[in-house]
Simulated scan of single mutants.
Amino acid sequence: MSTAPHGPERSEGGRSGSEDLSGRTVVDRGGSRIGTLEQVYLAPDSGSPTWGVVRAGRNKQRFVPLHDANPGENAVRVSASKRQVRSSPTASTEPELRPEFEGRLTEHYSGAPNTARGSIAAVPRTRGAVSGSLLVLLGVWTALVPFVGPYFGYGFGSGQPWVFTADRLWLCVLPGVAILLGGFVMGPTGNRFLAAMGGSLALLGGAWLLVGPSLSRLWGTEGVATAIGSPLGSPSMWVWAQLGFFFAVGALVTALSSFALGRLSVRSVRD
């Protein structure tokens, strides 16, 4: 940067070209209007503009970089984006910028690949699309398998399909709905925090599939000894039923939602 370490000085009179910039409209690098340039800071050694103060809506003053600004006929175009300017550090205008504040400004605008990415809440819609879609399918499977599994001799308790019990509600339907809703929320959203809520909801549903069958044996209703009912079919089907109803699905849901939450917690360069 050409700015002196002790900070640039405010322009006075006609000693520099700052008069040509003050009062002019400032636009970002894409041509979007930012505001009106009210004050210009100069480098004390060269007298060239370094920073400017722009009033941008609701009387908010923001600092913009003028090191490589392009003073066109209609407006002054700066190299920063409008979002960068809106998120820039703020301070009261003074005759000289404090070195520590100027350092913050330099750090903010020199990190253009990062600070121009927009709000921290923004996330590409593709970030959770695959995980969300898989969670939706797993949620549908979890909620429906106790009702359609008996058609194929696959399940627990009653061998008749579409028999509703409290055990199936608590152990299959409710966690399935939680996983389904979590996948629906996480898949298409462009909001990081909303997607994280969906992933957390699916994670809870998956965790319940892992511990619910064991905890169900403590329930005092609908069969204390076998809360989920006896497995249907042969002993080999018993194993597949436990995996397909609860443990394998729960582990897969937990892994997918945890992976998605991990990706959502990190801002990549493309964000």
Score class of each variant (00 low, 15 high):
8 P>I: 08
8 P>A: 14
10 R>C: 11
14 G>C: 09
14 G>W: 15
18 S>T: 09
18 S>I: 02
21 L>F: 10
24 R>Q: 06
31 G>I: 04
32 S>Y: 13
39 Q>N: 12
41 Y>C: 07
45 D>R: 15
52 G>Q: 05
54 V>E: 05
55 R>W: 00
61 Q>T: 08
61 Q>H: 14
62 R>Q: 10
65 P>K: 03
68 D>A: 15
70 N>T: 14
74 N>P: 00
86 R>Y: 13
93 T>Q: 11
100 E>A: 14
101 F>D: 01
106 T>L: 14
109 Y>L: 01
110 S>V: 03
111 G>N: 15
114 N>C: 01
123 V>D: 00
138 L>D: 03
143 A>H: 02
145 V>K: 03
147 F>G: 01
152 F>C: 01
157 G>H: 02
159 G>V: 02
165 T>H: 07
171 L>N: 11
182 G>V: 04
183 G>Q: 08
184 F>N: 02
186 M>W: 07
188 P>L: 09
189 T>Q: 04
190 G>E: 12
195 A>K: 07
200 S>C: 07
208 W>M: 06
212 G>C: 09
225 A>G: 05
226 T>D: 14
227 A>E: 01
228 I>F: 12
228 I>M: 15
229 G>K: 00
229 G>P: 11
230 S>V: 13
230 S>F: 12
231 P>G: 07
235 P>D: 05
236 S>C: 00
240 W>T: 12
241 A>C: 07
245 F>P: 03
247 F>S: 13
254 T>K: 02
256 L>T: 02
261 L>T: 06
264 L>Q: 02
